[in-house]
Amino acid sequence: MFNKYFKFWLVFITSIVTYYIYSLTDGYYKYFEVPVSETYAKICSNILNLFGFKVDYNQLNIQNEKFEMSIATGCDAIMPLVFLTSIITFYPYGDVKHKLKGILYGSLFIILSNIVRLCSLFILGQYNKDLFDFFHIQFWQAYFILFTMFYFINWLKKINN
């Protein structure tokens, strides 16, 4: 039992370290981070336009007459996705079906949350700089760590049942 959990944490932490090392490479930035952030910029600008914000996007930037925002490293929600995928994949219990379901729903929630984060930050940035800073740095970062941690714990409860 101890051995199983020890191996699990070892493999999981190794996978996270590997991801971080890979994230330092130019290849990661060019072929992974930029396309992901561009997709978010495109989706968010379309959503914001639905609400009449007259937004335009250019690569990683979302902008209108009042405000401009760039999707930087750490605002792409890639880390929560990597965390959730690897912790569920390497967890020693649970069958493949439950694992795939857990990863799929979790990823969808994270992606949707990130779209909500980016759209809400853009709206806040237009009206209140202090609120933008608070939600950008304090609230949303804390939300993502709590969400991924408790999603995983909830998934554990489900597979235990």
Binding site: I13, I16, Y20, S23, L24, T73, G74, C75, M79, P80, F83, I137, Q141, A142, F144, I145, T148, M149
Partner: peptide
């Protein structure tokens, strides 16, 4: 590795 040290990185490492 200095480039890694943004807020999201710190928060996730603390959580791990």
């Amino acid at each position: 590795i200095h480039n890694l040290f943004h807020i999201e990185f710190n928060f996730f490492v603390i959580m791990i």
